[in-house]
Design a protein around this nucleic acid. Sequence first.
DNA 1: TTACACTTGTCTACGGATTGTCAGAAGATT
DNA 2: AATCTTCTGACAATCCGTAGACAAGTGTAA
Lengths: 256, 256
Amino acid sequence: MKAEEGDNTSMMQPDKFVVDAKPSELPPSLAGTQILVIEDDPRMQKVLHRMFREQGYAVTLCSDGQSGLETFRSLKPSAVVLDLLLPNIFGRDVCKAIKAEHPEIPVIVVSAVSEVADKVLLLELGADDYVTKPFSPRELMARVQAALRRRYKPTATVTYSFGDCEIDFAKMSAHRADKAVTLTAHEFKLLKYFVENPERVLSREELLNEVWGYQSYPTTRTVDNHILKLRQKLEPDAAEPRYLQTVYGAGYKFVP
Amino acid sequence: MKAEEGDNTSMMQPDKFVVDAKPSELPPSLAGTQILVIEDDPRMQKVLHRMFREQGYAVTLCSDGQSGLETFRSLKPSAVVLDLLLPNIFGRDVCKAIKAEHPEIPVIVVSAVSEVADKVLLLELGADDYVTKPFSPRELMARVQAALRRRYKPTATVTYSFGDCEIDFAKMSAHRADKAVTLTAHEFKLLKYFVENPERVLSREELLNEVWGYQSYPTTRTVDNHILKLRQKLEPDAAEPRYLQTVYGAGYKFVP
DNA sequence: TTACACTTGTCTACGGATTGTCAGAAGATT
DNA sequence: AATCTTCTGACAATCCGTAGACAAGTGTAA
């Protein structure tokens, strides 16, 4: 059983995981979110711990269901990642208990393929989502984030505003003076990076790396063009930029 | 241009690289950063060494894991580039050891494709990022810089103050007596070098070399001109320099 | 002290480097 | 195919670094 699990672990397919593990993925308001990971395999523990931490989540680890449940009660985390192959209590009982006490806290189940053969079982347990081994960390990450989004959305929209602009990165919608403004995908990404790094001078190189990615190397002129577009769409006076300032010889910086 | 993506090491284009190796590429706080390269292939060594050197990093080379680890301990570099195909110790053990001793120092792994078949392994090892051979030097460079950025970002405001001056190199903003002062990119770079080498007498040659990236030293008043500007902008009395002192016949020194 | 050689301070104007902006090509999406 | 997005290259506008001239300052040897 154990051995099998280890094998599965080594079969994970994190395709581009590391590449995507930028600390900036998380909407600001979700940073520091507590994730409880209940998992008995030490190797997997490490991987998961590291993964979530890199995304900016606070992680608590438990190796068995008993302590997991206790920690859950005292910690009241924002989400739980639960491996169904657990000693002590059966994982499904843990899941049931959690859902009985706090049905609003999302539980993402990690499970061997055979375990989830009938998904009905999981629904009965009250799990919000699941991934089957072998899984890609990226997928798990995505599902956890999706679960958090679902849960947090009604409460607080993740919007950011400066001047008379209001940006909702989740919805990918932007408004200026209450009028809708359409931004393209790249423009959103670029703006997001600026918003996440206010005041800091960002070189064209850095922007190309962080916004465009490592694999494509467009001209640095490309950055200027996108800045131009953002200014035209968001600045009160594109000729006299107030928010997206250029720093001669260095790059640009965003001043809210 | 796009064809570059598939470049392997033997197809690297050093000329193009030199073009990009402007001294201003480096994030302000990272100049003179120590990079430890652990790599056994002499050809690759040369390439990497040259590459980082040109970007303004200080490079230390090691040909095997044993000496690499020892050097790591004594050197405490800012980042490690590690080739996984190493004699002596397995590269992965080196990686583990490094991460065990200094988890905060980023390790970027260079690896043959097959090696990373399961990239989870790399996560377990604690590697921060990786590139697979064949890789483009530019991409490796970018990833190292990104890793360094990530590491230094949490440190937040890298501000420095002396007298009634306060400098934030990341934001490239300066204040004297709570009034904003505008410095150009070169002025910031020069000032930064002074701040990083307080009390030490810096010759014009050294400054031209380190700040301007000059290889030859034409008789020029360039340095003096910039010192002048810095004094005018930062000194209480530019005629009687208090912080940027002249050392007759030798150069200048910064006395906080 | 004085005179002299050399170093440094300071100013101006030129020229190169950097950026804003546009139009059209190339690519992606539908 | 049609449309929208992204990229490239060109040009103009602008900024700033640099060279060079000259003044002022510093050290030294007679």
